[in-house]
Each structure stands twice: as structure tokens, then as C-alpha cells.
Design a protein around this nucleic acid. Structure first.
Length: 428
RNA sequence: GGAGGGGUGGCAGAGUGGUCGAAUGUACCUGACUCGAAAUCAGGCGUAGGUGUAAGCCUACCGUGGGUUCGAAUCCCACCCCCUCCGCCA
């Protein structure tokens, strides 16, 4: 949520920021609503003040045993007007809220210009894509050859975009998650979180997934008429830890890491990445979340992105770091780096991590604030990033570590998690 | 799922229709005393919004949402959450 004061006082700044995103906005309805709100609110509060004064008089007169009829008569005349004003004000405030809630965040000044992913800027490239003296297989062929990826079973059990993993491949997947958690907790100072996989609508509003993106979520109805949603990322439960809180600024930064499955309905991506496990309804992800003061957040974004990069480097997976352009960023982000890992079979880099600074955008939606000693509460800043998407990391390992006979070498750093298995061997 | 108890300021805890945004204690801040600290004394000390150059004034908020009333922390209804016991259960 943008600062409503910014909309009131500097609408041209908001319009310019949104234009960079390619999201033109007409602020005329907002200004009209604001003008009305101002007038109705002032009027309502005046009426309330009058009623309060008179009601107190009644109390005092009664205590003295005097006649209250004249005062009663005056206050009675206030009733209808007051009620009408209060109702009108409530409607106006709700409309204003709804309007502001659907405006995306403004891009930071350092965000590159651009309409879509073609405008993203490569800021760093690490590692050298491996060369093979054979035609590299993609992870589907490799995984099936190893007897470790069973796409048919996933489809039978649940439907398309679900996959079953077996044996050493399933273990490798688990090893990756354990490895990532261990690095972030022991080397990067994150506190491990285990969080609910189902969340309420308020939490999703807080991170910016609702109300605009409900079609991306799996919704679970309950018998009492309420509903929950399966989390699309651990960002949602973990960031909402601080919803409605006023934190001591001295306690920041808070750094959380959380391994969860993520559920995305992928509505609107029919036909995209249908092969393999690149785009699934369910995938595991290690998510890093930082809760910081406004002064910290830009350094924190670099740090957090570096933490995700560390995982790729330890796994010796070639990647590049992209600064997303204004038109390609998510709804809540002020700035985003994507990390893209090299996939030999596709002969290209594919997204494996997304690290964003949301500044106060989520904090305002969540009413999450911090207070320095003696100071006023103000919205804190939130960040998060994948560190990393586990399923896609598995794909990258399979493809980058493959050998001519269809076997796959286990990356060195994963050996402690693999119980002596150093090579995944294909079935006969 | 059943029965009972309870949600008030950072914390504890009063308040059952009328100067209650809320006693008191505690924590915290400022000042006095002190070489300094402790103790003591005095003052301050919630959040959000409106209005004003400002001092200030005003409004809302006592789990949430409705209702009754001139007036609600207090009465009524619904819901949410927490605690205790019973049942069920990984």
C-alpha cells in the first residue's frame, strides 16, 4: 500500500512512478473521493463533538436534579444527520482504501526502465556453463532415466503440473533443502521458521497477494463459511509474523528462513513450461525474509541477494543476476533482482530466485511498524528472496552435473546429506 | 465436538450506563536531590485520523462486527481468539 499522504500531496510523483511500470493511473476519482471525504469527515466530527458535549451536559444536569428536556430536544435533532454522515463517511473511507490497496508499489530510482522482461538488465554473471562432449539431456529424460522423476504418477494422483519424486532423486531434493537451510542459519544469521501452509485472507492482503491476485491461489473452503488459502510462498506466513506489531527498532533486523511447499494455481500460464518440473502447482522453496528499519533496507537487499547467490556458488551452478525493469516487477516490490541459473538442455538461464525490497509497501498493508527509542512509530521495511527454489535447483543440478551415460554426479557440498551416495545411477 | 471461564494501555490490574482514553501498581522518559548511582519527590508517558502557521482544539479506538441509548469499556446479539475440563485424534 502506498502512503496515502503521498497520493494526497504529490500525485504527480505517484503517476510518474506508475507510468514507469506501464501502469497508467487516473487519479481523478481519488481526488474527488478525497475532497468528499474531507468535507464529510469534518462535518461528521463536528456533529459528534456537539453530541458528546450535550450528552455530558445531560449527565451533569441529571446529577444536579435539574431539567434535561431542552438539551434532550436539541440532541435528538442531531441523530439523523449524524447517522447519515457516519454512514457516508464509512462508505467513502472504504472506497478510498480499496482504491489505494490496488495500486502497485513505485519502482525505486535505481530500477531500470522497461516494459517487460526484455528490459531487464544483467548486472552480474558467475561461473562458466559446462560443455559436454555429448548431447546433454534435459531433466525430464535424466530424471526418468534415473527412475527418480515420475511425471505420469503425478498426473494420475493429482493432475497436470504435479510430479512424483522417488529414491535418490527424492533424497537429492531433500538434501538440497537441508543444505540451504543449514547455510542460511549457520552462515548467514537467519532464524529457522516452521510456518502454517494455510493462511487467512488478512495475511495475503498484507503481502499484496490479495485482493488482486486471488486467481493465482488455491482456496480452501471451510464448513463454517470462511476460507483459507494454500501459501504461494513462505513469504506470506513469515512476513506476517510482524503484522500489527510495533517493534523496537533496536531489535532489527529480523532475519527468518523457512522451508515450505508452495502452491500456485498457475492460472493464465496454460501451455507455458508444460514439460518437466519447471512450473508446478506444488514446489518446495527456501525463503529468506528480512524485517528491517527504513535505513537498512537497501543494503539488506544486496545482502539478501548475496545470500541466495552463495547457495548457487557453493553448488557451483552458473548463474546470472538480473535487475528487473520497472515493467517486469511484481505488484509489491520497489526493486527486484532475479537470479537465473544455467540450464544446459534449454541452453539458457532460468529464474531460480527472486529477491525484493518492498520498502514500506507491505508494512503499511500489515500495519507493521518500528519505533526507535523515544521516537514515533513508523512503517518498517520488508524484504524477501528465494534461497532457493528447491525443485528448480534440483533441475539445475541434474542437468549441469550429468554425464554421458545418464548418471549424475552429486555436488560436493551435498555429499554429507546423501548418505554416501556420490553418483546417481540410471536404471538398466 | 461438549461444558465452563476469560479477552481493558509495554506488563499487571481496577472499572457494570454519565466530565472514562480509562484508577492504581510497575516499566520507561525528563527534572530535583547526589561526586555518581540507588532510594525518594515532581512532571511526563497509547494508536490512528481531522483541523490549524503554531500552542492547541476535535474525532475514533477497552478482542471484532452489529444493536439499544441523549450518552456504552459497562447492557443486548453474532463472531473471533485464549485458558481449564471432557471426548476424539497424528
Amino acid at each position: 500500500m502506498l502512503d496515502i499522504q503521498l497520493l494526497r500531496t504529490q500525485p504527480e510523483v505517484v503517476a510518474a512512478g506508475l507510468a514507469r511500470r506501464g501502469a497508467a493511473i487516473d487519479l481523478t476519482p481519488f481526488e474527488a473521493l478525497e475532497a468528499q471525504r474531507k468535507q464529510v469527515q469534518t462535518q461528521t466530527q463536528d456533529l459528534q463533538a456537539r453530541r458528546n458535549t450535550l450528552s455530558k451536559q445531560i449527565g451533569m444536569l441529571k446529577a444536579k436534579g435539574e431539567d434535561v428536556a431542552p438539551v434532550m430536544a436539541e440532541v435528538a435533532g442531531l441523530g439523523d444527520a449524524l447517522k447519515a454522515n457516519e454512514d457516508k463517511l464509512a462508505v467513502l473511507l472504504a472506497e478510498l482504501d480499496a482504491f489505494v490497496a490496488q495500486i502497485p508499489n513505485l519502482p525505486h530510482e535505481s530500477v531500470p526502465e522497461g516494459r517487460d522482461e526484455a528490459g531487464n538488465v544483467e548486472v552480474l554473471r558467475w561461473g562458466v556453463p559446462p560443455t559436454f562432449d555429448f548431447k546433454p539431456q534435459d531433466h525430464v529424460e535424466l530424471g526418468e532415466g534415473l527412475g527418480g522423476l515420475d511425471f505420469a504418477a503425478g498426473v494420475k494422483i493429482a493432475g497436470s503440473r504435479f510430479t512424483l519424486m522417488k529414491g535418490e532423486v527424492a533424497r537429492l531434493h531433500r538434501a538440497l533443502a537441508q543444505f540451504m537451510l543449514d547455510v542460511h542459519t549457520t552462515e548467514h544469521g537467519y532464524t529457522e521458521i516452521y510456518a502454517p501452509y494455510l493462511v487467512n485472507p488478512d495475511s495475503l492482503f498484507g503481502t499484496g497477494n490479495l485482493p488482486k491476485f486471488e486467481e493465482d491461489l488455491f482456496r480452501v473452503e471451510r464448513s463454517d463459511g470462511t476460507h483459507l488459502y494454500l501459501i504461494p510462498t513462505a513469504e506470506v506466513p513469515v512476513t506476517n509474523i510482524v503484522r500489527g506489531e510495533i517493534l523496537d527498532a533496536a531489535s532489527l533486523p529480523l532475519k527468518f528462513v523457512c522451508h515450505t511447499p508452495c502452491f500456485r494455481s498457475e492460472a493464465g500460464s496454460y501451455g507455458k513450461d508444460t514439460r518437466g518440473m519447471i512450473r508446478q502447482h506444488q514446489f518446495d522453496k527456501i525463503e529468506m525474509v528480512q524485517i528491517v528499519t527504513p535505513e537498512m533496507s537497501w543494503d539488506a537487499l544486496e545482502e539478501l541477494t548475496g545470500h541466495a547467490e552463495t547457495i548457487l556458488r557453493k553448488l557451483a551452478l552458473p548463474y546470472r543476476k538480473m535487475a528487473l525493469c520497472a515493467g517486469d516487477m511484481g505488484f509489491s516490490a520497489a526493486k527486484t533482482y532475479d537470479l537465473e541459473v544455467w540450464l544446459p538442455a534449454q541452453n539458457t538461464y532460468r529464474e531460480i530466485s527472486s529477491c525484493s525490497n518492498f520498502e514500506a509497501f507491505q508494512a503499511r498493508r500489515m500495519q507493521a511498524r518500528c519505533r526507535a527509542k523515544g521516537g514515533k512509530p513508523r512503517p518498517l521495511h520488508t524484504l524477501n528472496g528465494s534461497g532457493l527454489a528447491v525443485g528448480r535447483t534440483l533441475v539445475a543440478v541434474l542437468e549441469n552435473y550429468q554425464r554421458a551415460d545418464g548418471s549424475v554426479t552429486v555436488p560436493e557440498v551435498l555429499l554429507p546429506y546423501m548418505g554416501g551416495v556420490a553418483v546417481l545411477t540410471p536404471l538398466r
